[in-house]
Amino acid sequence: MYKSIVLGVVLGSGLISSVSAQDYPMKNIDLVVPFAPGGSVDVTSRLIAEAANQYLGDVKVVVSNRAGGGGIVGQNFVANANPDGYTVLAMTSSVVTNPQLKGAPYSIEDFIPVAAYNLDPEVIAVPASSPFDTIEDFVAAAEEDPLNMAVAGIGTSHHMSGLALTSSVGIEFNYMPAQGFGEQLQAVVGGHADGAFWPMGEAMVHAQAGTVRILAVASDARDANFPDVPTFEESGLGIPVWATFRGWAVPRGTSEESVTFLSELLKQVYEDEKYQQKMTDAGFDATYRDATSFQSLITSYTDQVVPIIEDNGLAR
């Protein structure tokens, strides 16, 4: 008797879950990009949507831009959205730091990570005309006198990567904030700054063009495009990885089925060769980390930045 009830429940729930899996997605999925069209998150999101829509049949992933407040307006919109699986955030690492740094009204726990599609390790770049040929030259000079380093702004991940170096090996920097990457590039290529803390994604083409030189990369392995550039760890900088990430997240409360479905969808996209080529051409390294692995990425990033924010008094 009991056995048959248990069996019934199990079968029933299995049936329900399989039905609900087929039920989703029934309509278009909104991929919220919290920035204006044309930026890196927008471009990558559109490449993903294009690839994803080949596998979705009748419904589509639709990119919708909700800019404002440096991304917080759109991020907050998703945090408060109906957790039905039809609102997805194009999530960046700034979601981790925005509550603490900028007083964003959400918390990182308001989101469930779906999957990561791009990791962007930090690099130390110098002008092509720089006297520093190697990371050792750079560190030696920084020990003498703080170097002037271009960064995207005080309190950005890039500024904090410099602060992390101060904590780990004691070298200090003079930070030269400039909002746009163009202005930073002008300062570095023109030799007005000694170097820059940049994401690899931005620095790569300019290093390949020979206008800047990358001295070290903060990832666990060397970059295939720059086999001669050592990692931070190899250079004795004491930071194994420092990378910003891009991925998908959904509001807390979204069903596990939806999360799994979206995660699998991103995996399919990742395995698409045409998509990989397009990402490479646009200057991004396509990767895939499933929900669990993305969660641990977020956790380790949080563990890395929170002490830096607190030690340097950056919190609001």
Binding site: G182, Q186, K278
Partner: peptide, 24 residues
């Protein structure tokens, strides 16, 4: 150089990236 002269020419970067082109 890949350095946009103003906010409008910066939008060219995005449009070019969608087509796999990086100015510079």
């Amino acid at each position: 150089l890949g350095i946009p002269g103003n906010s409008t020419s910066a939008l060219f970067i995005g449009a070019m990236a969608l087509h796999g082109l990086v100015p510079g």
